[in-house]
Amino acid sequence: MEDNILEIINLNKNYDKFKLCDINITLPRGYIMGFVGANGAGKTTTIKLIMNMIRRDSGKINVIGKDNIKYEIPIKNKTGYVGEQPVFYDDLTVGWTANFAGKFYSDWDGAAFNELLTRFGVDKTKKIKQLSKGMRMKTALAIALSHRPEFLILDEPTSGLDPVIRDELLDILMEFIQDERHGVFFSSHITSDIEKIADYVTLIDNGKIIFSEEKDKILNDWKLVKGDINKSDDYRDDLVGLKVSKTGFSGIVKDIDAFKACHDMSLLTIDKISLDDVLLHLAKKENQK
């Protein structure tokens, strides 16, 4: 138990027009999990439930080995959070905000915070409202990292940011994970970020988990199969998430050897798969019908 930094068991949350259904996710310590899905698939809702910012209807969430409601305060004391649009009080300076936040953490390290700000190039004396989106994210990240957390939760931290900042973030996360007691849970619809550094990938679609697996297993084992349009029906049963366009079709094969055994491969091309392909084929199925 202790060795999972995050454990979600049969989590449910109902809204009028949307529901999270039986979410199960396990992330061992020492690893990064990428949480992918289309906008509105339920990523932010799940993260808010983990942070106990909203109440779950049923199920269980353990963070750092403890129930996230019962042990909310000690868990938050050891958790760093960066939201999609980091929010603070606009009229306060970066320094004041951090100082304020630091008052609530038992292990706040002001020196570490200052170092991070210098590294990120954020001016401590600037007001939050004067910061660009990237600077805000960096400020949130600096605060999230300066109280010696064990667990980092990031909700779309890279959306709307330029590639340079995104790359810096990946560096920071890799640095954080050098301690094998740590863990990172990080949602993004930019799959390339996750494709690089995540150890595990969880795909959520329409409030349901499609899969939660080792990333390498997916990228190495699954293949993208493409072929001519006329033949698409022959493969309908054996391809996952078959997509048909004007010129051809494509789909995912989870066991290429079994597939090869029962189909003539000379008319098909087999490609290495990317997370984007996975997302395109497995998410938003309702649009294809």
Binding site: M51, I73, P74, K76, V87, D91, A101, F104, I128
Partner: peptide
């Protein structure tokens, strides 16, 4: 108003505060 406008409330909820 500030808690609402700046969504400072969300910020507070991520800190270890009851």
């Amino acid at each position: 108003y500030y808690d609402d406008k700046d969504r400072g409330d969300i910020f507070l909820r991520t800190l270890p505060i009851k």
